[in-house]
């Protein structure tokens, strides 16, 4: 069942060194649903998702054309700083701030936004860590260095950190690709629960993962959108030949 559209991409083309990495992509991401973006390596999925929080343009020799509408406002016409507050991101390799504790990592976003009392910050930190299913594991050592956590825990810490900024959309760029199956399962379970409050967009190279967690799936190939629809339909009754070839594993 479709909900209202939260994020709408219109004719998006993104360039690296004047060569388009994605061309003319149009897509609608519904609110509080999980949308997966799949495709073989180099198809542009990371580029696409990095355009959604305006991170793509921070790299040298890059250009973006087209529109991305967040609740009907083009994010490319807004202040990127504001955009990134509303659209958070979790990266492929967990990147906690290495010099900071767990607590300081999660509360980082709060420090940009004026003074909060210790109690307020505590509340947000606890809530975010709970949301990220990490609280129970770290509750007696929130002042420990963030790097003392395991890979899977660090990734959940990054999720907590992103949630503490109170975004509306959460982008996840292959969040489990560096993790073991157990850690992956924990995060997939987390995704299922997070979608109650946030719109989630996940890039994954793992088709089974998309099948497990996503409500909708988009299939990209060499920078173009090939097919987009409810996950079940895309996997069982793909409309495009290319999609079918990818799904059945005829190319990687």
């Amino acid at each position: 069942m479709y909900t209202a559209t939260k994020l709408k991409v219109e004719g998006l083309t993104a360039y690296y060194n004047n060569k388009p990495a994605i061309s003319d992509i149009s897509l609608e991401f519904p609110e509080r649903q999980v949308t997966a973006i799949i495709g073989p390596s180099g198809c542009g999925k990371s580029t696409l998702i990095r355009c959604l929080n305006r991170l793509h343009e921070t790299a040298p020799h890059t250009r973006v054309e087209g529109r991305v509408l967040l609740d009907d406002e083009d994010i490319y016409a807004l202040d990127p700083v504001r955009v990134r507050r509303r659209i958070g991101m979790v990266f492929q390799k967990a990147n906690p701030f290495v010099t900071m504790s767990i607590y300081d990592n999660v509360s980082a976003a709060l420090r940009f936004n004026g003074r909060h009392s210790r109690e307020e910050t505590d509340q947000v930190v606890v809530r975010s860590l709970q949301h990220a299913a990490l609280w129970d594991e770290v509750k007696d050592r929130v002042d420990a260095p963030a790097v003392s956590l395991s890979g899977g825990q660090q990734q959940r810490l990054c999720i907590a950190r992103a949630l503490a900024a109170d975004p509306e959309v959460l982008l996840m760029d292959e969040p489990c690709s560096a993790l073991d199956p157990i850690a992956t399962a924990k995060i997939e379970e987390l995704i299922g629960r997070l979608k109650k409050d946030y719109t989630l967009i996940i890039v994954t190279h793992n088709m089974q993962q998309a099948a497990r967690v996503a409500d909708l799936t988009a299939f990209l190939y060499i920078g173009k959108l090939i097919e987009f629809g409810p996950t079940e339909e895309l996997f069982e009754r793909p409309k495009e030949k290319l999609t079918e070839s990818y799904i059945t594993g005829r190319f990687g």
Partner: peptide, 27 residues
């Protein structure tokens, strides 16, 4: 300073100076 640290700050909605202050200088 690794780009990942800077991107972590940017993705939280940090300004240039905040990114420098939080992600780069401590590192």
């Amino acid at each position: 300073v690794p780009a990942a640290q800077k991107e972590a700050a940017l993705s939280l909605g940090a300004t240039d100076w905040e990114t420098t202050r939080i992600a780069m200088l401590p590192y």
